[in-house]
Simulated assay, not measured.
Amino acid sequence: MVFDQAYWYLNIIPFGKTCYTNLFYNILICSDLTELWSATCGQQAMSAHELASKAASLALTQLRHVENHATLCQLQRDIIGYDKLLVAEREFIRLGCVYKHSSKGLQQTASVFLFSDLLLIASKSSSGHFRAHSVLPLHRLRLEPSDLPHSINVVDEESTVLISMSNDVEYSGWWESLSDSIEAAQDLRTLVDTQLTHIDNDTENTDVNTNVSTSNALSYVCWHRATSVTSDHLHLALRSQLSGYLLRKFKNSHGWQKLWVVFALYSLFFYKSWQDETPLASLPLLGYSVSAPSPTDGIEKDFVFKLQYKSHVYFFRADSNFTYNRWTEVLQTPMMQSRHNC
């Protein structure tokens, strides 16, 4: 139930981890050389500092490129009806769930995928994919406010698309992302292929469906929880990882289960032990909050933290105060707040 997201995460490890390691050590070297330079005013220390700074900057640039390419590859697997996402220089900006209004006034749930040069609007198909319905070049678009709450008119040369968001935070985030991306695209005016790919029903339900797993990929979680994520959030997600043994307890259960828990890409993956390759289950954390148990929860153990999304509640128990603080610190991210600014 987690393989698409786990595949995405594991795919970037060979090169992505190398970039992270190079960046980390270059930052340490820069810090040490700065102190040495300040103490000795040596020309060699200054030259070494400049070289390490350039290496760190290059590693960061390479890391962003790897993350963006991995994101485009994952989204191309998630989307059918448009097979031209993997284009050089294209950057992922934002994805999420919105409400699209038809010409007859009907409101339909839609997924919107924003890139540096185009806006793709899709619906969730019976196969679990997102089926593209329209691809709009950004340099031809402009935004207009709507009388409806949390709504934006996306105006093309030939049509207008009215979309609504679930709250003020989502509305502000989408308005800012769209405005900035449209402005940047108008300066570049990149040629965009907007032709949709024909997919018949048999192909949608068989051949394409064999490679999709819908439970954990961020695009599917955003769909079910009416939220969105940005490229900055994904960058943070890839840097925020933690693993270790925890005891897990459900809201209405009595016992605790010891599991090896991996936190990656804003999801918890549960294993029987650290040696297992396949997770038993997973928990996407978009929208979850992390806190200490309340008195009404009836938890009398030490080092316990609580994860909650609406009526879904989970308790996790660490083996020490240090481990407890480490987990709650890592889990306290903007992505997990119930009213985050995505």
Rank of each mutant, 00 (worst) to 15 (best):
E204F: 03
T230Y: 05
A70C: 03
H198M: 11
H65Y: 05
Y245H: 06
Y266K: 08
V212G: 01
V87Q: 04
H340I: 06
K84V: 07
E329M: 04
L236E: 09
S146P: 00
I79R: 01
G298V: 06
E89D: 14
L138P: 09
Q257V: 14
E50C: 09
R77E: 03
K84I: 06
A281N: 11
L285I: 08
D117G: 02
H65L: 09
D276I: 12
S243H: 07
M165E: 03
Q43I: 05
N153D: 08
L114C: 00
G255V: 13
I121T: 07
V135G: 01
S253P: 01
S215D: 12
H65D: 07
V208F: 15
T61H: 14
M336T: 15
V261T: 09
S243N: 08
C19G: 08
Y324T: 06
L178Y: 00
W8H: 12
A185P: 01
I199C: 09
D297H: 00
H224I: 10
L58D: 15
V135I: 01
V98W: 00
Y266M: 12
Y9P: 03
Q337H: 11
L331T: 00
D302L: 10
A226P: 02
L331R: 02
V330S: 12
R339N: 10
S123R: 12
D302V: 01
I27D: 11
A264D: 09
L307E: 02
F270K: 03
V212T: 07
Y220G: 05
Q62I: 05
Y245E: 06
V212L: 05
F15C: 15
D147V: 04
S320D: 06
Q257L: 13
C222D: 06
R239A: 10
K272N: 15
L51Y: 12
S172V: 14
R131K: 13
C41S: 12
S111M: 12
A122D: 02
S311I: 10
V221A: 08
D168Q: 13
N22G: 09
Y324K: 11
Q74H: 07
Q308R: 04
V330H: 09
F315A: 07
H49I: 10
H129S: 12
I152R: 00
A318G: 01
H224P: 04
G173R: 05
Q332T: 15
L106A: 12
K100E: 08
R94N: 03
L85H: 02
